[in-house]
Write a protein that binds this DNA or RNA. Sequence first.
DNA 1: TAGCAGGAAGGTA
DNA 2: TACCTTCCTGCTA
Length: 484
Amino acid sequence: MPHSCSTQFKLAAEQFPTDSYAAYAYADNFDLSLLPEDSGIPTTVYQYNAPQIKIESAWETQEQPVSASYAPANSCSSASSSASSGHQLIPPPAYPHSAYPSPQSSPQQSEFASFKYDCLSSPCPSLDASSIKQELHILPPSPPESNCETPSPRSDTSSSSIKAEPLDAELESYIDLNTLQQQLLDIKPNHQALRECLEDTTFQRKHNLKPLALESFIGGLAEVRGDFEPVISLALEHARERERAICAKLQISQDPNAWTAAQVHAWLRSTLAQFKLPPVDNLELQFSEDGAALALLSEEEFQRRLPESGSTLHAQLEIWKMAYADQLGNEMEATAPAANDMLWGYQAPNVEQDESEDDEDMESAVPLATATATGTPTSAPAKRSGGARNGGSSHIHLWQFLKELLAAPQVNGTAIRWIDRSKGIFKIEDSVRVAKLWGRRKNRPAMNYDKLSRSIRQYYKKGIMKKTERSQRLVYQFCQPYHQ
DNA sequence: TAGCAGGAAGGTA
DNA sequence: TACCTTCCTGCTA
């Protein structure tokens, strides 16, 4: 048997709760065929001392230091003889599966179910907590639709066996994980169990789960933020915390766009080391870009330059960019109730506009923090009375919202972008997504582009927007005072 | 089929 | 009352 029962606990304590979330959002390029055929089957179990909690609660415990919540057991086959008295339980799920797409037969959807195997989620590609979890919770004897649910952590000090409790109330039977592990080792090597589970859709059908479109994650995190707002926010907060530490260590900005070439190299080396990726000798030659240029590189370009680690580096960079953009948004709402009005260039028609805002740099999120902090617009915009802005978003006007999106091309560039910033001409690249974002902002779930465009057309009469001289689909133009 | 244009009525702050 | 939102019909690319 190629699998040793020795503990393979390689999970970096700081990695599990942090990167798991962020990595999920960027899960990519998983294929069942990528599952190792002869590598060790995860057999790690963890000591979990927290009280029994349901999956939702488990989420809240993610903040706990891993060292306090999870301790590596020293044996997988003799949990009862473990020095840690056998309280070996799998860790809380890295993601609430109830809000997750179920395993699907299609490769794309399988990517979700197996996102943990993406190398960016862990410095140890071969093994991490969720891979263990996945292997364990899919095991027989329960039918597929019952055992695809993630067992919740359970502390049972009276038992030396490892047990997991299915969340589904209809499935009260416990699974003896020791037995299951053995079955996995003896009967289902080479991740066969995982393969079977991932190809099974009965779980989804039973629980009437609605699969998420993969492209909604890959194509743009912003689109799904409303559905996963708490999760994404948590993930981004974790990412930010880690980034702050790295920034302090490397003496670099949290904003990748602000990095010099040297700082880019420092970040690349740090990330390579963090994920235990092979060092790159000629890093300076491979990446001569500064941070802004680096941020524009595609994943393919990363992979072309660094076949082994390019994908991970690109994914990490995306996480940094996303976390920074999200942080800006938080700071805006926290520090300036009318930040949107000011930041996105809104001025009362008779108010002079700081010319610096015409800089192309305004398109990036970078100067926004500066604008927030310094109050770049010299005059407060004319604001509507009432004050109840509900975090600065509920009363936002559509045209302001569109400028808000346009001002964050790193995040929204695939949905809406400037055609000619100086003339206020922009194009909606993804009408569905923009409409969703608008509906989310206004708490109008039924919003669609038809309605949004109707609102835009109302602006024609008001002189806020107009069609471009040469009418093009999905291309609009701000009228003079509004696009500055 | 998706987007555009605009009328009409209604909702909300 | 302003600002959408919703629904609608008809047209266009």
